[in-house]
């Protein structure tokens, strides 16, 4: 398999001996939409910044599109939208794109046309010549995404791309990202919005305390808690005795308007329905319960001995 990003034993230790990245091995398949997840302080942004040489790595190696990440030319064909970017307020949306396009090696007519194309794609064409100072957070974010897409990069790092964007804007950005993936661009998506990652990513990795706990296809990572069948019941209120009877069938968890029953033997589902009928509880729906990415994530993090935030003090 070809990888757009590969790291081997990559480490980062900040001043004060805080180890933000412990020897870290990560592989991002080329052409995938890769979601990097982790609690605050897990080292997600440090990893992205280290890969782009914004932060200097302390050890190990990495490759971007097959090139050694320490050299400037490794960033050719790579786009980046940082979290909480602050583009110079004296620039307009167009000049921001032209400036960063120039830095990416574009110039002349090709740059001019590309800037217009990307701004139009993100519905920012009409605002292109207004100063950034007049933009809302969502508009600035769209311009940020536009500059990241200039020059048709093969790999784009997006750090919290929908942060501060309204629902319509989010939908737009998701659409653009899916389109990019469709064209074979690798998207490295860094977000704490797990539902969003679940919607657009096909590969994920979960980080905690500078380590990658798990990486792989989305469904594989979500399957970490599917060690039995889970069924969601939508019912009228349950009394204590019914609840006790259900507990004998499997693990019961509260869920809005009902509960989720996790059983090791599928026959227990029928038995549970019998229990409910016997108790006179109205059953409105019984459906397979799909584990969300958020649940898988919380499950994995809760398994860790240290659930605190931040890097590791060496």
């Amino acid at each position: 398999m070809e990888y757009a990003v590969e790291t081997e034993g990559l480490t980062k230790t900040y001043k004060g001996k805080v180890q933000a990245l412990l020897p870290l091995d990560l592989r991002v398949p080329a052409g995938s939409c890769f979601g990097l997840l982790g609690p605050n302080g897990a080292g997600k942004s440090t990893l992205v910044k280290t890969l782009l040489s914004i932060v200097r790595g302390s050890g190990g190696s990495a490759k971007l599109l097959g090139r050694d990440f320490r050299h400037a030319h490794a960033r050719k064909g790579v786009g980046y939208l940082p979290e909480g970017h602050r583009f110079p307020r004296y620039l307009t949306g167009r000049t921001v794109c032209q400036y960063f396009g120039n830095l990416a090696g574009l110039s002349g007519r090709a740059l001019h046309d590309d800037v217009q194309r990307q701004l139009d794609l993100l519905d920012m064409g009409e605002w292109a010549d207004k100063k950034i100072a007049k933009y809302s957070k969502g508009m600035a974010q769209r311009v940020g995404l536009a500059q990241a897409m200039l020059g048709d990069p093969k790999l784009i790092f997006l750090d919290e791309p929908t942060d501060g964007v309204d629902p319509l804007g989010r939908q737009k950005i998701r659409g653009v990202v899916k389109e990019l993936v469709g064209k074979g661009v690798t998207i490295f998506f860094n977000s704490h919005l797990l539902s969003e990652v679940e919607l657009i990513c096909d590969h994920v990795a979960i980080m905690h305390h500078g380590r990658v706990l798990m990486q792989g296809r989305l469904e594989d990572v979500m399957g970490v808690t599917n060690d039995g069948a889970a069924v969601r019941f939508t019912t009228s209120d349950l009394d204590a005795s019914t609840r006790a009877a259900l507990s004998a069938r499997g693990e019961v968890a509260e869920a809005g308007g009902g509960f989720v029953l996790k059983v090791s033997d599928r026959e227990m589902i029928n038995a549970a329905i019998d229990d409910l009928r016997k108790a006179g509880v109205k059953v409105y729906a019984v459906e397979p319960h799909r584990v969300t990415l958020e649940e898988a994530f919380i499950h994995l993090i809760n398994q860790q001995p240290d659930k605190g935030v931040g890097g590791v003090k060496a």
Binding site: I54, A72, P82, G84, F100
Partner: peptide, 18 residues
């Protein structure tokens, strides 16, 4: 200092220039 502002320098350094 203007160049080194957080959120501004990141994009500059992420480009293929030394």
């Amino acid at each position: 200092p203007g160049l080194l502002q957080s959120g501004s320098v990141d994009v500059v350094l992420s480009r293929p220039i030394s």
